[in-house]
Design a protein around this nucleic acid. Sequence first.
RNA 1: GGAGACGUCGCAUAGUCAGGUCUAGUGCGCAUCCCUGCUAAGGAUGUGAGGGUGUAAGCCCUCCGUGGGUUCAAAUCCCACCGUCUCCGCCA
Length: 424
Amino acid sequence: MIDLKALRDDPDTARASQVARGADPALVDELLAADERRRALLSSFEQQRAEQKELSRSIGKAAPEERQAVLGRARALAEQVKDAEAQADEAARELDTLLWQMANVVADGVPPGGEDDFVVLREVGAPRDFEAEGVAVRDHLELGEGLRAIDTERGAKVSGSRFFFLTGVGAQLELALLNMAMDKATAAGFSPMITPTLVRPAIMAGTGFLGAHADEIYHLETDDLYLVGTSEVALAGYHSDEILDLSDGPRRYAGWSACYRREAGSHGKDVRGIIRVHQFHKVEMFTYVSEADAAAEHERLLALEEEMLAAVELPYRVIDTAAGDLGSSAARKFDCEAWLPSQQRFLELTSTSNCTTFQARRLGVRERTAEGETRPVATLNGTLATTRWIVAILENHQQADGSVRVPQALQPYLGGRTVLEVQA
RNA sequence: GGAGACGUCGCAUAGUCAGGUCUAGUGCGCAUCCCUGCUAAGGAUGUGAGGGUGUAAGCCCUCCGUGGGUUCAAAUCCCACCGUCUCCGCCA
C-alpha cells in the first residue's frame, strides 16, 4: 500500500500517478478525507478511553460508601466509550478499504498510457534471416512435436486445454534451463529457494495480486488457499511481519517453483502450443532492499535477465512498460521480449518490477535503520527463466531439417548435447 | 481423523487457578555512561511494535497467537479460530 503520510504531504504526485495509470485521481481525495475523519474519531475515542481507564482504576480503591455512585458513572462512561470506539473502528475500516484499492505510485519517467504505450529501451541481437538460410520456419509446437519434446494433445486429454506434457528431451531442456538459471542466480549472490505454491489469503493479498486481476488466480475453496502464479508471492511472504537487518546489503533470493494461472481473460489468445498455459515452471529473483537502493537493484535484476537471454543466444528487446500496464504493486517494470520467428513478433520472456515499499507495507516487512528506527523496505522481482523460454529457443535455433541447435552455455546442462535431433 | 500440552515486548521466563498500582516483573543479550585497569570484572541508566497529538520536551491510545464475548475493569474468565509440539490412527 502507499504511504499515507507521503500522500498527505504531496497529494499531487499521487493524483498524477493515478492519471498516468488511467485510474481515478479522485481516489486520492477520498483517501485524504477518510484519513482526516479517522484521525478525528480516533483522537476522540482515545481521550474518552483514557478517562474511563482512570475512573475504572479508582473503583478498586474507592471507599465502600461512594463505590455505588462511582460504579454508576463508570457504567455510563463505558457505554459512551464503546460507541466512540465503534465509530473510530468504522472510520479506520473505511480508510483501509480505500487504501487497499490504491495502486502504487508510479516512478518518475514511466511512460503514461496503456499496454501499447511502452517505450523500447534497446534491441539486442538480430533475428536470423531464415529465408536467406533456406530454412522454412516451423513454429515451436511443430518443432517440439518433431523432437518428441512437447505433447499438448495428451496434456489436454489429462488436464484440459492449456496443459501439456514435456517429454524426453523437452523435459530435459526445461530442467537444463532452470538449473542454469539457478546457477546464475546463486553465482550472483541469490539464495536458492524452493517455495510453497499454495499460500494463505493474507499473503496473496499482500503481494497485490488480488486486485483487478484476481480472476487470474486459482483459489482452493475448501482450504481457502491460493495457488501462486509466481514464487514472488511466497518469497514476498517469506519475511512478512519481520524487521530485517539490511546493513550488510540486500536479501536476495532465487525462487524455483511451479506457477499457476487461470488465463481467464485470454480466451482465444495464444491457444497453440505452450506460450500461454495454466501451469509452468519458473526461476524468479526476489530482493529485499532499502528503498534508496531500489532503483539500482532494479537495473541489476534487468542486467541478470539480459545475461540469461544472451547465454541462450536469443535476439530480444527491452521495454519500459507503460503506467497502465503495470501491476498494482509495481512502480516500474521492464520486460525483455524475445523475437518469435513463426509469428514475426516479440514475446515476453522476462519481467522485472520495482514494487518500492508497496508490498512491504502490506506484508509488514521493515528494516532497522542505523538510528534504530524501523521503516518499510523495498521489494523487487524479476524472471530468470520459465518454461516459455523453450518456445523462443526452439524457434530461434531451429535448423532446416527440424532439429534444434543447443546454445553453447546450455550444453553442459544437457549432457554436452549440441543438437536436439528429430525423432522418428 | 482421535487425545493431550502449549502460544507473554530479541531469547529465556514470571504472571493466568483466586480479574483491579501488570502503568507486564526478572535473567540473558544489546546500547550508552561510570569506575577500574590488563587476556577481564563490577556498577548506573536505557532497551518491543503500531498509532494519535504537540514547534518541542512530552502526554495519550492500542497490541500478551487471532477474532468475538462477559465486566466499571481482562495477559488473567467464556466461546470460536489459527499455529507449534507430543502420542495414537490412517495414507504416501
